[in-house]
């Protein structure tokens, strides 16, 4: 189930990866604006899903509060840009710092005091929710009426200030997703990755084998929250408006993780595949249910689809697709 695709990459898998990459790079030149906007959302969820997956899928620590790190990254970079004219290229480092500090604080409390599993998840929810309430009362950050980035009609893309066309945002998030995948793949095939997986599989056995649990869990939460914070920077400059009552909510966190769950927790390409399935699914259902004029009918069918996937492919879609397409090397006992 757990994918170590690079290590066991077959020619077929590499070819598929190359084709998908090429299509995604060329996409803006042949898709219309609507499809491009969907692809942008897909890649955003692929990116933050991957960042989240690093914590649960790799290191076994469940976070249901990743909206916090998106929001902190978004608010930090947006506030620096609006109030002080700081370019997001610089602001992203402040965003990472804030997200990592928050992640490490939650991690420290959870891991030092052995708050595990669902209790740790509750801790992450609590931090996200109460940070939202705090931001809701900070008028400097727009409080409940929201924080808005100035929108200008530019002739050309301003990459330094992340002001420009959807195509620019598309390439930025595509690059981020590619970099996150490369980073995760490298981490997974390092000492760090093996230690994380050992912790995920059996914490006591890992500790008895010389794995310093606290340190390696902290590294996982730090990298995951930092990556997610970068996603928040992109989010702020793409959407141009931030509201505490939506940004910090658990529903946001769940949206981040659903792609990974559907695609396959712990696998490298699961979060990407999940995003490519769920977002278009939502769009298709919106289109299909448009004429029905029944409140919630789209959400109903969407939920039904997600439940069906989770029920019939509990390991996620990626391991199934991996076998279906014969992407793995033919080795006995070696699952993707």
């Amino acid at each position: 189930m757990m994918s170590r695709i690079i290590e066991s990459a077959s020619p077929r898998a590499l070819a598929l990866l190359a084709i998908v990459t090429a299509v995604l790079i060329a996409a803006p030149s042949f898709v219309n604006n609507y499809v491009l906007s969907v692809l942008i959302i897909v890649l955003y969820f692929a990116y933050v899903g991957q960042a989240w997956n690093l914590m649960l899928g790799f290191a076994g620590q469940l976070s249901l509060g990743h909206a916090l790190f998106v929001s902190l990254g978004a608010y930090t970079s947006a506030a620096l840009f609006i109030k002080f004219g700081v370019s997001p290229v610089v602001g992203v480092f402040a965003a990472i710092a804030v997200a990592v500090v928050a992640g490490c604080l939650i991690g420290y409390l959870g891991f030092r005091f052995s708050i595990r599993g669902v209790y740790f998840a509750l801790l992450t929810i609590a931090f996200a929710e109460f940070t939202g309430i705090i931001v809701d009362h900070i008028s400097w950050l727009g409080a409940s009426s929201g924080l808005f980035l100035p929108v200008k009609n530019l002739q050309s893309n301003d990459i330094v200030n992340l002001r420009g066309s959807p195509t620019m945002f598309y390439y930025v998030i595509l690059t981020l997703t590619g970099l996150a995948l490369a980073l995760c793949s490298w981490l997974l095939n390092s000492k760090l990755g093996l230690y994380w997986q050992a912790i995920r599989e059996d914490q006591e056995a890992a500790e008895a084998s010389g794995v310093p649990l606290f340190r390696y869990k902290m590294i996982a939460v730090a990298i995951s929250s930092g990556l997610t914070g970068v996603g928040g920077v992109w989010y702020a400059f793409y959407y141009n408006n931030l509201f505490p009552e939506t940004m910090f909510k658990t529903s946001q966190s769940v949206e981040i993780i659903l792609g990974s769950v559907v695609g396959g927790v712990g696998s490298l390409f699961g979060p990407v595949l999940g995003a490519f399935v769920l977002t278009p699914l939502g769009e298709a259902l919106t289109a299909a249910t448009e004429g029905m004029h029944v409140d919630g009918v789209k959400s109903f069918f969407w939920g039904l689809c997600v439940a069906a996937i989770v029920l019939f492919r509990p390991q996620g879609l990626w391991p199934w697709l991996y076998d279906l397409l014969g992407l793995g090397p033919k080795r006995e006992g070696k699952k993707p």
Binding site: L194, Q197, A198, E201, A206, S209, G210, V211
Partner: peptide
Amino acid sequence: PFNELTLVENVAVGAL
């Protein structure tokens, strides 16, 4: 054992 890891990986955790 670390169930999702191969035998080599299981033992390599110790060697690390």
